[in-house]
Design a protein around this nucleic acid. Structure first.
Lengths: 144, 144
DNA sequence: GTTCTTGTAACTGCATTGATTACATGTTTA
DNA sequence: TAAACATGTAATCAATGCAGTTACAAGAAC
């Protein structure tokens, strides 16, 4: 099990759009940087657009960020690309036997714990923005 | 995407073994409570055994916990059933283009963030034991 | 109007999950 | 000792999701 790379690619796309803002970033260009197919990029960009993170026009090359770098959290991207459903990071077996002490109560015991674990993970993304990503990339670039 | 229910089932199995300790809990009996096939239970119990959480003998009905309830954390179970690999909860696209500012640096920028998110999630399980689960189930039982 | 772009749909190969069946091996007991 | 019952494990199956690929309609720009 592993969470889809759409999330990592989404971050890559947005960072690239910003760092390449003098030029238009076509899906073909972005695909070259990500190392995948342009249709894959367009699909993910469609999700980012739907979430209000970028502006893209059919037929027009390139995309622009809809908000400031500091206003786009990693959590926004995470939700946009739909890699994990709300409170469904962990699967729970359904219909445990209702006549059993454990079967009867296990779901309501485990659910809040799984929700807490998922929340703890998502909070990390809520506290980071695209600005952090872009600054980190720029810092690495200046060292070299 | 969703993390395998093996984790939830693993917790169910261990809680049931404890709460049913007067009787031997055969894989068939546990399967009835979980509502699945006995072979599925035996496979998961094999993982729990391999991790040193339970004692089972081929041919002998039932299993016993190898440790005290308070000494088995949910993280132990989580690792035992192998639902998420170490530092691989999130996938990262590989071979981004090395000649691109973003492609060159994105992996090393994102990796520590993904690791931190996974750790935050796992910490929740490190701080809970089977004792918490069993007590919660018992408390619910007493209300009814 | 040709060329380039985005937006989508359809199809592929691959991996994982969970259920199921089957059977070898070990244990108990009558 | 033989029958009954248990675990351990392999093989198979359907369903699902991921990522890559091809194809093409629709929009925009030169």
């Amino acid at each position: 099990m592993s969470i889809s790379s759409r999330f990592a690619v989404g971050i890559h796309i947005l960072a690239l759009i910003d760092l390449n803002k003098e030029t238009a970033s076509s899906s073909e260009f972005i695909a070259g940087s990500v190392n995948t197919n342009a249709a894959v990029i367009r699909k993910i960009m469609g999700m980012l657009k739907k979430a209000g993170l970028i502006d893209v026009q059919p037929g027009v090359a390139g995309a622009k960020l809809s908000k400031e770098l500091s206003e786009i959290t990693l959590f926004d991207i995470y939700k946009a690309v739909n890699v994990v459903e709300e409170n469904e990071l962990f699967s729970i077996h359904d219909k445990p036997h209702p006549d059993c002490v454990v079967g009867k109560n296990i779901q309501s015991t485990i659910e809040p714990i799984f929700m807490a674990a998922q929340s703890a993970m998502e909070k990390v993304f809520q506290n980071l923005t695209l600005e952090d990503i872009v600054k980190d990339i720029e810092a690495k670039e200046h060292i070299q």
